[in-house]
Design a protein around this nucleic acid. Structure first.
Lengths: 140, 140
DNA sequence: TTGCTTGCAAAGTTTTTGCAGGCGC
DNA sequence: GCGCCTGCAAAAACTTTGCAAGCAA
């Protein structure tokens, strides 16, 4: 957990209610919201809020490094607070995106360097399939 | 290698020069082109061609299963002919996307089912970093 | 007060859709 | 000849940008 107020100031950005609210929104959800989802969720709290503010805030959060952008093949991007690397489980039926715990994660860095002279910075693993809930509620 | 003529007919689609050319384009490159790249490359051959045709053809190819869509975090999607699963090496400097040979690939299917009740259909692994060429030509 | 931020609106990108003429079969 | 395809243009969806007023510091 990051002190968003401290972090923004540290990088020379001003602390505004919108930015704090967007951060708290991201910190309290596991759905990997899109800009539109964030916007809709915050609208009751900030009736005059603009989508542009969400995008501009995402830019700052990306710059500061606390937000990671993911794209699971939809039209729009989704955002999550940056954490240790973990794969995403994307349900091809309900479009949910969940985090997978990656304790048995493989370190591909040496392999990539040896085989392809490729210097690994980050990685994104997406698994597409049917999630537990969809499988349970399947029409049989 | 697929007989695109046969395949299109099999699914009730007509065989047009554009569709064949797009297929051959995909079969002869390793750059994972976007719709725009395909369009620009085919323009000399089909001066009247439209981007819409590229998109419509991609739809058909997806339906038929010979094209896989990948998104490495850019604004636009990239396309490749469907093959066995393999990770993609995305260079964060030159934006190139290369295939990695995945002989030592791990089968995550049992693990995902056991840990998350998740039924794996497909997967996408992206490794982001610096490719060999960029590393060699780096300004030191 | 200073100047970064916001919200609005307009513009920019990428992709989709509708339609009339054209071509595969 | 029939009906799917193409190319064009318009539209849709998402994101970015410019600007005037507002707020953080």
């Amino acid at each position: 957990m990051v002190d968003i107020t401290f972090l923004l100031r540290k990088y020379g950005y001003k602390v505004t209610p919108q930015r704090v609210a967007i951060y708290e929104m991201l910190a309290s959800t596991r759905v990997h919201p899109s800009a539109e989802m964030l916007f809709q969720t915050l609208l009751p709290q900030f009736p005059a809020m603009s989508l542009a503010t969400v995008y501009k805030t995402m830019d700052i959060f990306k710059t500061v490094g606390i937000v990671t952008v993911i794209n699971v093949g939809e039209e729009s991007f989704r955002y999550e607070l940056t954490t240790d690397h973990h794969p995403h489980l994307v349900c091809i039926r309900c479009r949910s995106v969940e985090d997978a715990i990656w304790s048995e994660g493989v370190d591909y860095k040496p392999w990539l360097l040896r085989q392809f002279d490729f210097i690994l910075h980050t990685q994104q693993l997406f698994f597409y399939g049917i999630c537990k809930i969809c499988n349970d509620t399947e029409v049989r």
